[in-house]
Amino acid sequence: MGSIRRRRPNPFLWLYYQYGGRLSNAYRAWVLHDSACRTWLLRVVLCALVHLAPVMAGLALFLRAVLGGPWALVLGSLLLGVLVYLRFVLTLAQDSTDSRLTRYGYPAGYGTAIRAQAEQERDTRR
């Protein structure tokens, strides 16, 4: 995957993409890289945290202002919510990345197949 020239989205397009927007076909190779590279799972977690950050910030301010609890309690509660959310995200990570790839014209299960092939190649090199 490293030999293909990939056009990276700028920060605004990246945010648009993270919130479910569809990039043009010029970014198709980058979308494949994003979904199938060695750090794909870390990228899924980062995307989930980007989705959750505004909600958690608003919720933290609301809980502190309305309920008046100590910051430690507010942040601890939010951390538990984030951990539960990440559990769901990680459970659905493979299917969501494969689904995203199908929107860009790749066959169903293509990301999973690419990741499995790369893992097999790494095992063979060892």
Rank of each mutant, 00 (worst) to 15 (best):
R38H: 15
L59E: 06
S35K: 02
P70C: 02
S77F: 10
P54T: 08
Y110C: 12
N10I: 10
T97Q: 07
Y106G: 07
Y17K: 08
A53N: 05
L23W: 10
L79C: 02
A93V: 14
L52N: 04
A60I: 03
A113V: 01
W40Q: 08
V66Y: 09
Q120C: 07
R126Y: 01
L78E: 02
L86T: 04
S96C: 05
V31S: 02
Y104M: 11
L92A: 14
V89K: 02
G69I: 03
L73Y: 11
L32V: 05
P9C: 07
R122L: 15
Y110E: 13
R87N: 03
W14K: 14
E121G: 03
A60S: 12
V82F: 05
G69E: 09
S24G: 15
D123N: 11
F62Q: 04
C37S: 12
V84T: 05
T124Y: 12
L92G: 07
V66A: 07
A29H: 09
G20W: 06
H51N: 01
L52A: 14
R103I: 00
P70D: 13
Y27H: 15
D123Y: 08
A60V: 01
T112N: 01
F62W: 15
V55R: 06
I114L: 10
L52C: 10
C37D: 11
R87P: 00
V89G: 03
R125T: 10
Y17L: 11
A118T: 08
T124C: 11
A118F: 06
Y16W: 15
L83F: 06
G20A: 07
R125E: 15
R87H: 07
Q120H: 12
C47L: 11
A26I: 03
A29W: 03
G2N: 10
A53I: 01
G76P: 04
G69M: 09
F88L: 11
R122S: 15
V31Y: 01
L32N: 05
L42V: 06
A57Q: 09
R103A: 10
L73S: 12
G68S: 08
T97K: 00
A118W: 03
G81W: 00
G76W: 14
A116Y: 06
A57I: 13
V50Q: 10
L67M: 02
N10F: 12
A48K: 00
Y104V: 03
L101T: 04
V84R: 04
L42K: 03
L83W: 05
R125L: 15
D95Y: 04
T97D: 00
V74L: 08
R8I: 08
L92D: 14
L52Q: 09
H33P: 00
Q120Y: 09
V50H: 11
R87D: 04
T124A: 15
D95K: 08
A65F: 01
Y104I: 02
S96E: 10
D98G: 08
D123E: 14
T102E: 11
R28D: 07
R115H: 10
